[in-house]
Simulated assay, not measured.
Amino acid sequence: MKPTDPKSLTESAAGVFTYRSYGLVIRSEIVLPEFDPATPGGAPVQVAIRRGPVALPEGVRALGAWFEFSDSGVRFWWQAVGGFAVSADGSEVTVEYGAGVSDDLIAFPLLGPVLSEVLRRQGLFVLHASSVAFEGQGLALMADKGTGKSTTATALLRAGARLLADDLVAIRPDQNSIVPGFGQVKLAEEALTQLPEGSAVPRPHVHDQIDKIRVLVPGLMAPEPVPARRLYVLVRGGGSEARIERPATGEMVPALLRFAYADRFGRAGPQGAEAARQFRDAVAVARHSAVRRLILPDGVTELDKVIAAIRTDLGEAP
């Protein structure tokens, strides 16, 4: 049965769906085919997603985008999509649909910035990155937009890796493990050829301003958490070779904080005790995982050189 078939979802009589993702049991009033279905009434529900109004300050609905972090949680607003509220402990998410907005469009912020706050508030360190389990090791690929983290991740999948996450990489700082998320990647059209044959289920285009293709790859997911071994910062080198460099020790934590998902919110993001916890988590992750710079060659035809460089690097001492 295709992953996008609604009949493959686990649904209660009340139209509420039960899923499992990032090690969490999620009860949702919104259809999310990206997530793995779970059996209702099994493990305790840790996150509840419901439809409903989101209280917003006066004037916010006239803005294109807005968000606010506080001790009671975080609220988001996108005029083209709707409003979202996450509780202080990340256990509840309220979703207010904009007029005419589909579940597919709601899923873009819901499974991005909104879910990042759910995970962070559940005690995970969240990177804006892609991640795979490769030859028994957990790898995270961090990069600025357009550098090629998803393309590199799919090349690793073609080489036998298993997907841990694309876009939201969640690490348990106390265990130094990367937790599997959900089986979807977002790719430029030319990168689709890097996926193993027969593994991809492209999804419909949603919005004119979204240029990447969403592809379900549930059969390529890693089944369980994997120790975080290497955290690569991807850089375009402008040549035909791939190489891996060791940054100075003092550069490792700043690199992780730069690519922490919460950093995307700037100064309006986590403050005070929450910001201090984010720093402590980054230190813990950097202490147990090796941060490296991965210099990429130009062109998708050279990605086999990237795989070879990673294999060599993993064979070296931590």
Rank of each mutant, 00 (worst) to 15 (best):
D166A: 02
V283N: 04
R236I: 00
P53M: 10
A43H: 04
P180V: 03
A133Q: 13
G250Y: 07
R258N: 14
A200N: 12
S8K: 10
V47H: 11
G138R: 04
T18I: 06
K7Y: 10
Q194I: 00
T301M: 10
Q194F: 05
L141G: 00
A273H: 07
A242Q: 04
A133D: 14
P225Y: 04
V300N: 12
R258G: 09
R258S: 12
Q184L: 06
G299L: 07
K186W: 01
L164D: 01
A248H: 07
A222R: 03
L257E: 10
R172L: 13
R50F: 06
R292A: 14
D281Q: 15
G52W: 09
G299H: 04
I210K: 09
L105Y: 11
F69N: 13
L141K: 00
P3D: 14
D166Y: 01
L115C: 09
G42E: 13
R75I: 05
R287K: 14
P173N: 10
A284L: 11
A248W: 03
V95E: 06
M221G: 07
K305D: 11
L56P: 03
E34N: 09
E68A: 15
A260H: 07
G250R: 12
R280Q: 14
P33L: 06
R267F: 09
P223Q: 02
G219V: 09
Q194Y: 04
D174Y: 05
A309T: 00
A282G: 09
Y261L: 00
I310N: 10
E245Y: 02
T39D: 14
D144H: 08
A107N: 08
A13C: 04
A276N: 14
D211Q: 13
L24C: 07
S177R: 15
H205E: 14
A290Y: 00
P180R: 04
Y232V: 01
G219Y: 05
A286C: 07
P297A: 09
S177T: 14
V45F: 10
R229F: 06
D104V: 00
R214F: 07
L115S: 08
